[in-house]
């Protein structure tokens, strides 16, 4: 049941070197640099997003994800979800408005898999970048690199998948869209709060709180191939692809930012991967795991499973 959570709104990623990271996220992925705050964090957005930013980069001594934030429909929704999060047993912290530039109050909470999340209701809206809200043109001409159109989802690695599933479905109103089952054990879960195939996903892993990738949306397979060309042209660290997933059937390529955080750009090139509240859960058997992850190779790549930040 929907509880007022609209979409993934932002992700704060730790990078080792801000200059290198900016070249990657701005000039290669094609995000637009929107702001730099007094802590040195850099804020970027993909061009179709209406809010001011979706990616926040923080220079740090370790790579990884600080937190992922979801935008909810109203402050009332945020306040009632805060109570429910506490009741569920989350450690809840109120982050005052303005701590992230242009963002209202945020409610930060931990999760059974050891990741930190936030909900918030307000963020400055600058509108889609490069086009007007009135009689808009189709797309802006001066986008860079891969021209990614939106921040789409994160895939996280952690231990207590059942706990995070319960938190996100019961408290936050997400639905389980796809899963991988090894007998009774759910080893991967893809959750949605929208019509998208997934807004957040987890894979079971011994360590808590690991970051597998942040994913950005492209429109076509042609654009995925073009991204692959850019990855070679600029000697970006490639993980795997271009290929197709079995899970969600997205067409995809994985690569790493200069600090070793994995990124994905993908398009939903099968046509059937949207979600309605009455869509049945799609289950993949662990015996088909290779095909579930990499639909063409049908074999898992060691790094895709083991390398996380």
């Amino acid at each position: 049941m929907k509880k007022g959570v609209m979409r993934p709104g932002h992700v704060q990623i730790r990078v080792l070197d801000m200059d290198e990271a900016l070249i990657h996220y701005r000039d290669r992925l094609g995000l637009i640099e929107m702001h730099k705050d007094s802590m040195g964090r850099v804020y970027l957005k993909a061009w179709t997003e209406i809010d001011k930013y979706s990616v926040v980069l923080r220079e740090a001594d370790e790579a990884g994800m600080d937190f992922m934030g979801f935008k909810v429909t109203s402050t009332d929704v945020m306040n009632s979800l805060r109570d429910e999060l506490k009741e569920f047993g989350c450690q809840v912290e109120n982050i005052p408005a303005g701590e992230l530039n242009g963002c209202g109050e945020r409610v930060r909470f931990d999760s059974p898999t050891g990741h930190f999340f936030e909900i918030y209701a307000e963020k400055e809206q600058t509108g889609k970048w490069g086009v007007t809200a009135r009689n808009p043109e189709a797309w802006p001409e001066d986008l860079k690199g891969m021209k990614t159109s939106r921040f789409d989802h994160c895939l996280l690695y952690g231990d207590d998948l059942d706990g995070s599933l319960e938190l996100f479905t019961k408290v936050l109103g997400f639905d389980l869209a796809e899963e991988v089952m090894d007998g009774d054990l759910r080893i991967a879960q893809f959750l949605t709060c929208s019509m998208k195939a997934h807004d957040i996903a987890w894979v079971r892993h011994e360590e808590k709180g690991k970051f597998h990738h942040a994913s950005f949306f492209l429109n076509t397979w042609e654009e995925v191939l073009r991204a692959a060309d850019l990855i070679s042209m600029h000697d970006i660290s490639l993980d795997i692809g271009p290929t197709r997933h079995g899970l969600t059937h997205g067409q995809t390529i994985y690569f790493f930012d200069p600090s070793g955080n994995r990124n994905e750009v993908f398009c939903d090139g099968a046509g059937g991967n949207y979600y309605y509240p009455d869509s049945p859960v799609i289950t993949w058997d662990a015996s088909e795991l290779g095909k579930a992850i990499f639909y063409h190779d049908r074999v898992l790549n060691e790094n895709f499973l083991g390398v996380v930040t």
Binding site: Y157, I187, V203, S287, G306
Partner: peptide, 14 residues
């Protein structure tokens, strides 16, 4: 990783 350990047999099959 659990994903790998849990499915080592299946991986051989696929």
């Amino acid at each position: 990783s659990t994903m790998r350990a849990g499915s080592s047999d299946s991986q051989r099959v696929i």
